[in-house]
């Protein structure tokens, strides 16, 4: 049994490495051009944002509309640092500093507001993100509404891949641990969870801290890829965008979030050729998907090899029945 798990683990790491190498090769051979790379970057950043918001909203059940706020902390921190000291090392320092500051804010905001439930919490987190935006609008160091021209690009496929895979692995492991189970029980029934002796406030705050940390990373990656940041990029529409990915993929499904991030990026780049009606088609598609799959693409299930196998066995059984 143990050996089997080991082999499975090795296979997983091998698949991860292989994905990296293949894309890196395509980049080096210029098959993946700048335009495709920008799309890939957007997808990766959206995966980080969606998976981390999924931890807060999908698994722990805390409705948050402030994810873009956490993202902006990471973006501005990293941008300010790499503009002063442009080097790959300061990019990594800026990225982690931004993530830590975002996590700290998640903690500070989390403690008082997590007493709120459902829509009240949503409003409170929305307010928090707006306050952050206004602070950035009025500070000198952030250059107010004009925003910052970062000018250097350190986010490359390597870092993008490391942090995207890292976030997914971190949150998957967390969710599958007993801590993760405690978070899920809060979503299912907070009173019962408390009656079982689960410290519900602690786990809600932990979910917020981890979620905010990852959102900070996403912001830093964004700032050092797209050259330019301004407060309006991190308004509540951005938070809604992230929430759309999570809901579309399925609340409580990590693979769902990943799938939805890909799907939405593909849809929106296919629609580039119809600029006038692009948003209309996009919205209609969202409505249609939600009508037919209100629980999201994956529901709360995960995509896995064994899921394919069980699907296979269902088909086999059906075929057997006909004979």
């Amino acid at each position: 049994m143990n050996k089997l798990a080991e082999i499975k683990g090795i296979k997983k790491w091998f698949a991860l490495l292989l994905t990296y190498v293949i894309v890196q090769l395509l980049v080096s051979l210029n098959i993946i051009n700048d335009y495709i790379m920008a799309t890939i970057t957007t997808i990766c950043i959206n995966i980080i944002l969606a998976v981390s918001l999924n931890l807060i909203t999908g698994f722990t059940g805390q409705f948050s509309l402030g994810h873009a706020g956490f993202m902006s902390i990471g973006a501005y921190t990293c941008a300010i640092i790499i503009m002063r000291y442009p080097s790959p090392l300061s990019f990594i320092i800026g990225l982690f500093l931004g993530a830590i500051l975002a996590a700290l804010l998640g903690f500070i905001v989390g403690l008082p507001t997590l007493r709120l439930r459902g829509d009240y919490l949503a409003i409170a987190t929305l307010g928090m993100a707006e306050i952050i935006r206004f602070v950035f609008l009025n500070l000198d160091i952030t250059n107010g509404a004009a925003g910052l021209f970062v000018g250097v690009q350190y986010t490359n496929w390597l870092w993008l891949y490391v942090f995207t895979a890292g976030t997914v692995i971190l949150i998957t492991n967390f969710v599958n641990s007993s801590h993760g189970r405690a978070c899920i029980s809060i979503r299912e029934d907070e009173i019962a969870a408390e009656a079982m002796g689960i410290n519900t406030t602690k786990y809600k705050v932990i979910a917020f801290i981890i979620g905010a940390f990852c959102a900070g990373i996403a912001g830093a990656l964004y700032a050092s890829y797209f050259y330019f940041i301004k407060p309006d990029l991190f308004g509540f529409l951005k938070s809604i965008d992230i929430l759309v990915i999570v809901v579309l993929g399925g609340l409580g499904s990590i693979s769902g979030s990943i799938l939805a991030a890909f799907l939405l990026a593909i849809i929106s780049s296919l629609l580039q050729s119809f600029p006038e009606i692009r948003m209309v088609i996009y919205s209609v598609l969202l409505i249609v998907i939600m009508l037919f799959r209100p629980q999201g693409i994956m529901g709360s299930k995960e995509l896995s090899l064994s899921a394919f196998k069980s699907l296979g066995s269902i088909f086999e059984r059906k075929n057997g029945g006909e004979r």
Partner: peptide, 22 residues
């Protein structure tokens, strides 16, 4: 608790395990 308040999307076994959470 009143009204049972089981964790409905978790399995029966997971519910029992959560009862022994501490």
């Amino acid at each position: 608790p009143e009204g049972r308040r089981i964790f409905s999307s978790l399995t029966v076994l997971e519910n029992l395990e959560l009862g022994a959470y501490l």
